[in-house]
Write a protein that binds this DNA or RNA. Structure first.
Length: 419
RNA sequence: GUGGGUGUAGCGCAAUGGUUAGAGCGUCAGGCUGUGGACCUGGAGGUUGGGGGUUCGAAACCCCUCACCCACCCCA
């Protein structure tokens, strides 16, 4: 086909989809603002270094999934594959860390990853991204998940599972990593190709493998949760206790790991069986070292991202009550001279008005009015003009009556009928 | 990057290798001059994704290519 289409993995969002997006956005904003979060919008395009440093140079995202290119000056630029890096940069760049103890931020917008598209996965996708800087208290972790439950409840999403785990801090993870490597080293022959690669890259990710044999091998492996340092253990138990205070059921999945390097301690994933293979529609976790690693002061933080495309798959179409629409049907050039005055008068009154541009037959205009769901049709032809009146037809009960041909007066009259 | 599936009208679909590729929905027009939905009639709308091959004859069979979907991978 010679027609120009959207790029692979990119799509137009329209109709029901955009309504759902707007609902997700509105509901998110409502709860975020109630809980003291403020909005931040960071650029979609950033220096490539930012993502390499924050996400980790050995991750798949950085290795092969970024939209990266050189700008005219030769600098390497990248379309953001996730939001946290940019927000951390902004947090530091604006000196926010020196202005307030706790920063609660959110952003809503597009992210880009050069992946093969499939159900719930696109090259441009949208996230509601939430970050809290400045506290390592596990209550924050619980508060974030609680907020998600509020939001999901409001959107009518009921079937989902919250899985949580702790991946420990830098210290306990290093020790555990060595233990894990030695465990798998002796069982190398039974791991799939991908897991062999993971073994020296990021052995924790072997837990994510869907290969049956790998699952079998890793089912006997030591678990990080059994080897957390005391601090991390306390933190995780504190988190679980607060979740209990909120009366939110969670599933502790000791094999839950994340693909980004910066996560520490609490990690979580919210999944639904109705989504296909990409079943996580919200995920995140703590990143207590990232701010410091990015050149800022020691600042514990936690964040999460809601995948809007995926959540939209779970949100029913909320039917918006259709506003009554007035339709102006005119017959002939003389009547069309009233189009501008009528339009102005109705918009002045805050009333929605529609009309055809070409005029055409009355039947045609009536059909059009009906297809738009018009509550009233105003009919104006030579006869009415000579009598200085306009016909108002109520489309529901087919009543018709006349009003004086005075656009502002007509608009006021109809406005009263709507209230 | 790797596999599998699917590409026919705006949309969702039909058509044993055999006339001029069809119907539905939508759209436009008409149904005694200016009145909507239902109903009736008619019109417009196709390079059968694209290219090549086999054949007397291809939407169909073969090859290549592109796109979309699903899965691997990865992740929201």
């Amino acid at each position: 086909m010679g027609k120009i289409r959207t790029l692979r993995g990119f799509r137009d969002i329209l109709g029901e989809d955009i309504e759902k997006f707007r609902r997700i956005e509105n509901v998110s904003r409502r709860y975020l603002e109630l809980l003291g979060f403020t909005e931040i919008a960071t650029p979609v395009l950033e220096s490539t270094d930012l993502f390499i440093r924050s996400i980790g140079d050995a991750t798949d995202i950085v290795e092969k999934e970024m939209f990266t290119f050189a700008d005219l000056g030769g600098d390497s630029l990248t379309l953001r594959p996730e939001a946290t890096a940019g927000i951390v940069r902004a947090y530091l760049q604006s000196g926010m860390y020196a202005k307030e103890r706790i920063s609660k931020l959110f952003t809503i917008g597009p992210m880009f990853r050069h992946e093969r598209p499939q159900k719930g996965r696109f090259r441009q996708f949208h996230q509601v991204d939430v970050e809290v800087f400045g506290s390592n208290d596990p209550f924050v972790d619980a508060e974030l998940l609680w907020m998600i439950t509020l939001l999901l409840e409001d959107l009518g999403v009921k079937k989902y599972i919250m899985e949580v785990n702790s991946v420990g801090c830098k210290l306990c993870r290093e020790g555990f990593r060595a233990m894990l490597v030695s465990y798998f080293e002796t069982r190398k022959d039974r791991l799939c190709e991908d897991c062999l690669r993971r073994l020296d890259r990021n052995p924790l990710r072997i837990f994510d493998c869907k290969n049956l044999q790998c699952i079998e091998v890793s089912s006997g492996s030591p678990l990080l949760s059994d080897h957390l340092c005391t601090g991390c253990q306390d933190h995780f138990h504190g988190f679980l206790a607060y979740m209990d205070d909120f009366r939110i059921p969670v599933v502790v999945n000791k094999r839950l790991v994340r693909g980004l390097d910066y996560y520490t301690r609490t990690v979580f994933e919210i999944t639904s069986d109705e989504l296909g293979a990409q079943k996580a529609f919200t995920a995140g976790g703590r990143y207590d070292n990232l701010v410091e690693e990015m050149g800022g002061p020691e600042t514990p933080a936690i964040g999460l991202a809601i995948g809007m495309e995926r959540l939209a798959l779970l949100v029913g179409n909320g039917e918006l009550p259709r506003k009554p629409v007035c339709f102006f049907a005119y017959l002939g050039e003389k009547a069309k001279d009233y189009l501008a005055p009528m339009a102005k008068a109705f918009i002045d009154q805050g009333l929605s008005i529609r009309y055809s541009y070409e005029g055409k037959s009355l039947k045609s205009q009536m059909r059009y009015a009906d297809s738009l769901g018009a509550g009233f049709v105003l009919i104006l032809g030579d006869e009415e003009i000579s009598k200085n009146v306009i016909i108002v037809r109520n489309m529901k009960n087919k009543d018709q009556f006349e009003l004086p041909l005075d656009p502002p007066g007509i608009a006021v009259e109809l406005r009263q009928r709507f209230h």
